[in-house]
Simulated scan of single mutants.
Amino acid sequence: MPSLWFPIALIALAGAAVAAQPAFNGQLAAHLGSPLRAALVNFLAGASVLGVLVLVLLPRHGLPEARNLAQVPTHLWLVGGSLGALFVATAAWAAPKVGAAAFFATLVAAQLIAALVMDHFGLLGMEERPATMVRVLGAALLVLGAVLVVRR
């Protein structure tokens, strides 16, 4: 269990950072006149930060081999970024309208339901992990919590 503390702490930090992201992007969207423009700036900034990190870590990790790059299925080059763009643009548009708490309550409930289905059926390369009654009850409680948060 001690080996889990660092990843869990990092996840909690990332979660707190993600909670602030729609607020910043909503403000940016208001200034730029479009949630899509705000999402584009978000991804350009993120790509810039990641580009610097990749360059800094290049001596340690090197570059992938060309044959490994050629073996990557086409959809894997596109899907993750496209889903990220959907999230960022939706967050920039919806969070200012419904509030951060309602946005994230709905988002997390939907994420957990989708994740339970993915785990249960082993979808998208995930290892099968049954949707036990306890796990389903946990998800149901989270959905109930989301409903309570959204209802104000």
Rank of each mutant, 00 (worst) to 15 (best):
L36Q: 08
A91E: 04
V72S: 01
Q27N: 12
L116C: 10
L36N: 07
V54G: 05
L83V: 13
L123G: 12
M126K: 13
L86A: 10
S34R: 11
E127Q: 11
I113Q: 09
A12M: 15
S34G: 06
Q71I: 00
A38M: 06
L69V: 06
A66R: 15
V143C: 11
L137R: 00
K97P: 00
A146N: 05
L86W: 04
L4N: 12
Q21N: 12
L107H: 11
A114G: 13
A115R: 11
A94W: 08
T106W: 01
S3G: 15
G80E: 03
T90G: 06
L76P: 01
V54M: 13
W77A: 02
R67I: 07
E65N: 11
T74G: 00
A100I: 14
G26I: 00
A140P: 07
P130S: 07
Q27L: 10
L86Q: 02
A92E: 05
L32G: 09
H31P: 02
N25R: 12
P59W: 06
P73F: 03
L44Y: 10
F87R: 03
T74I: 01
P59G: 02
G33K: 11
F24D: 02
A114I: 07
L44W: 09
Q111R: 10
P35Y: 04
F87G: 01
R37P: 01
L13Q: 14
F87W: 11
A102K: 02
T74Y: 01
F43L: 10
F121W: 14
L10A: 15
A19M: 08
L55E: 12
N68Q: 15
F103Y: 11
A39G: 15
V108S: 10
L10C: 15
E127F: 03
A70F: 03
A16L: 15
A39R: 13
W93Q: 00
R151S: 12
A89E: 05
H75C: 02
A91N: 06
V150Y: 01
I11N: 14
P64A: 06
A140R: 08
V108C: 08
Q27G: 13
R60A: 13
A30Q: 10
A105R: 09
T106M: 08
A89R: 05
L32K: 12
V56Y: 04
A105V: 08
R37K: 12
R135K: 13
N68V: 14
E127M: 03
N25Q: 11
I11D: 13
L40E: 07
S48Q: 07
A115Q: 14
W93F: 04
P59T: 03
Q111H: 14
L10G: 14
Q21M: 08
L141G: 10
V49Y: 03
T90Y: 06
N42C: 09
F121A: 11
V117P: 10
P35F: 06
L63C: 05
L148E: 05
E128P: 15
L137A: 11
P64C: 05
L144I: 12
A66K: 14
V49A: 06
L137E: 00
F6H: 13
A100H: 07
L50Y: 08
W77F: 08
E128G: 08
P73M: 01
V18P: 06
A14N: 14
V72H: 00
A89L: 05
A38C: 07
A146Y: 04
A70Y: 03
L83C: 09
V136G: 04
T90F: 03
P73E: 01
V72N: 00
P35E: 02
A9P: 13
A9G: 15
H120V: 07
L144V: 10
V147P: 04
S48N: 06
Q111W: 09
L53T: 11
